[in-house]
Nucleic acid binder design. Structure first.
Length: 340
DNA sequence: GTTCTAGAAC
DNA sequence: GTTCTAGAAC
């Protein structure tokens, strides 16, 4: 299937944004577009690519005008963009064009029809359609080692494009090799850099950019995510089953709402700094049930503006509240609470 | 989000 | 001298 790329068309030169087939993506002011203009909403447009038919549908979410060529889309309206047409994110500025290409960025001409750059052969298991696991099927061994690094930089003829790092979850959740559970509404993946022996992420298939985008009719979905998280905990057959917490980061770095399901041992080489620690052990970590309750009560979820300050708090043990001077000392201290 | 590294802390 | 953090770059 062709790959859809949204290419910035002025001199900002930010990397093209890859759109996955029929997956809604919200774009606006933010790191992916490098747009800092306050006239542009953080959720200015919703885009959905049809890679088979070769167009993108765009819906204007923000108040200020998004254009396709000279035509204003208008808030709430939806139009299509085809290759050759130009999308202006807001106020006739920040132009983008659409490209559909078979290959992910090749410096060499694709005209030769070279198939040499098909680097990875898909595993046969992937070919036979959906694999739908029960959560009970998942292995219980924690696999924390991040993928081998120090791979040589990709050659000029086959760089791999995965979009801005903040979009990484959207890529991972689509990868069958990452999925440990899925149903019609959510998918569960292991956190790529787990901060504890067990650390899963529950993600809705629907594109919900952040807690701020949650609406009252998402309550059902959030409760389902919580139930699936519960199931993940229940299927964990660790002899010394740790305590778990489920919740959301107040200000997550990664796009796409994701529920953390994390064991409270925090025994992981991937937990390396104060930000990691405080993001799971202060109020920066908002319990799933609190998010649901807030959404039911207020019809929306708001986080304290000062939430990011919580990440700078001194390192304090989550069990006994004792303050620790450094991360290595904290890790030593955590062992005193461990039953194994 | 991670990696890298300068320089602070010890 | 080494360890560790924090900020820049990605």
């Amino acid at each position: 299937m062709p790959v859809c790329l949204l290419v910035r068309d002025d001199d900002s030169h930010h990397k093209p944004i890859q759109l996955h087939h029929q997956q809604a993506v919200t774009l606006g002011r933010g790191p992916e577009t490098t747009i800092k203009d306050k006239k542009c909403s953080r959720e200015q447009v919703e885009l959905r690519a049809d890679c088979n038919r070769g167009f993108i549908s765009v819906k204007q979410l923000g108040t200020n005008p998004t254009n396709v060529d000279n035509v204003v889309v208008g808030k709430g309206n939806q139009v299509t963009i085809k290759p050759g047409q130009r999308l202006y994110m807001v106020n006739q500025m920040y132009p983008y064009t659409v490209k559909f290409t078979e290959e992910t960025f090749t410096a060499r001409s694709a005209a030769e029809g070279s198939k040499a750059s098909k680097r990875s052969h898909r595993m046969s298991a992937e070919g036979n359609g959906e694999k739908t696991k029960s959560p009970a099927d998942t292995t219980s061994t924690s696999d924390c080692s991040p993928p081998a690094k120090k791979t040589p930089p990709p050659g000029p003829d086959k760089p791999e494009f995965n979009g801005h790092w903040s979009q990484g979850l959207k890529v991972s959740m689509q990868d069958p090799k990452m999925q440990v559970y899925k149903d019609d509404r959510v998918v569960v993946i292991k956190d790529k850099y787990p901060k504890a022996r067990y650390h899963w992420l529950v993600l809705p298939w629907d594109s919900i950019s952040s807690l701020k985008a949650l609406r009252p009719d998402h309550v059902d979905l959030l409760e389902h995510m919580q139930r699936v998280g519960d199931q993940m905990v229940q299927q964990c057959r660790d002899a010394h089953k740790p305590h778990f917490r489920m919740g959301y980061h107040a200000i997550p770095s990664m796009s796409h709402v994701h529920l953390h399901v994390i064991s409270q041992d925090f025994d992981s080489p991937c937990l390396k700094n104060k930000k990691h620690w405080n993001s799971f052990t202060t109020d920066y970590f908002v319990e799933s049930q609190d998010v649901v309750a807030m959404l039911e009560r207020d019809g929306q979820v708001t986080v304290k503006e000062a939430a990011s300050e919580l990440l700078k708090l001194p390192l304090r043990c989550h069990e006994c509240r004792k303050e620790q001077p450094t991360i290595p000392k904290l890790k030593e201290h955590l062992k005193t609470h461990q039953s194994v």
